[in-house]
């Protein structure tokens, strides 16, 4: 065999190893959390409030709390994100404004999540006096999710052929009619996928809600947007670092981690596979 063939063999083997190691960690994370988490999962665990100083009972308030904060965040980011993507894809004349907006979106996407947490603390908790609450947490996470919603919507909108827009305009439809009746319905599946993906992202975020929404221990369900709540991701962290019963708490943390993982993987996995299928079909 010639040297160039040998180097090719070695090189390709190395690349294959990289892929394998990456997937190995995916497998390891899912395996360990599933194997150990499944032991504590029960109907009671999913539906009861915590008991006996977090060592018994369930984590239902954390599940409900995560649900509320996530829905709240989407309610914030969806209208803004849609509008922004529509502006960028349909209205924007090329120019300095558009570049500034694009740059802001890219940079907003790169801001560390803990910085969003501080922003939420200073603005929503302190300045607007919403307190540590569902409202503050949702607003903070909503801003964090904004770039995700925008880029997913943009991808869906640019996939709509120009010829459909032309056909509509040539019939005497106005721009807005064209967007509302032709572009958005055509892009809808793609937009939905993007929204599902950002739901998955938001549901797992911890750092932004540390100081804006989350509390370690409550036996009550939230009764208004101004309530502080338990949330699954924060609960995992808190169980590992606070409280007086590390052993029992660790078991519960495994349970929480499994619920969160199943939740996020089910949501994101669905979106990822739908998008994959759309991409193959479009290709």
């Amino acid at each position: 065999m010639r040297t160039k063939d040998i180097s090719q063999k070695i090189g390709f083997a190395a690349l294959f190893m990289c892929m394998l190691v990456t997937l190995f960690f995916l497998g390891a994370i899912i395996y360990f959390i599933a194997a150990r988490g499944i032991k504590v999962i029960s109907w009671e665990f999913l539906t009861q409030v915590p008991k006996a100083g977090m060592t018994q009972g369930g984590v239902a308030p954390a599940i409900v709390g995560t649900l509320y904060i996530t829905l709240g965040a989407i309610a914030v980011s969806l209208p803004l994100g849609l509008a922004c993507a529509i502006y960028l894809c349909e209205y924007s004349p090329k120019g300095i404004f558009v570049n500034i907006i694009r740059m802001s979106i890219n940079n907003l996407a790169g801001v560390p999540s803990v910085v969003f947490g501080l922003f939420g603390l200073a603005v929503f908790v302190k300045f607007f006096k919403f307190g540590v609450s569902i409202l503050s947490g949702s607003l903070t996470l909503g801003i964090l999710a904004l770039p995700v919603v925008i880029s997913a919507t943009q991808e869906a909108l640019t996939a709509v052929p120009l010829s459909l827009r032309e056909a509509s305009l040539a019939l005497g439809a106005t721009k807005w009619e064209t967007i509302k009746k032709i572009v958005l319905p055509t892009a809808l599946p793609g937009i939905l996928t993007g929204i599902i993906l950002s739901i998955g992202r938001v549901a797992g975020e911890t750092a932004p809600i540390l100081f804006t929404a989350a509390t370690f221990y409550t036996r009550r369900y939230p009764d208004s947007v101004f309530s502080e709540v338990m949330a699954l991701p924060y609960h995992i962290y808190a169980l590992m670092t606070e409280g007086a019963h590390p052993k029992e708490q660790t078991a519960i943390a495994y349970g929480c981690a499994l619920i969160l993982l199943v939740l996020v993987l089910a949501i994101s996995g669905a979106a990822i596979f739908i998008r994959q299928r759309q991409r193959i079909r479009n290709a």
């Binding site: 981690a257 993982l261 994101s268």
Partner: peptide
Amino acid sequence: RSVLKPMVEILASIPSVVYGFFGMMI
């Protein structure tokens, strides 16, 4: 590709607190 790429994307969607937990416990 059509199997592996989504798997990499799934790896990206695992929440950071789960990574932290995995790091701490395993």
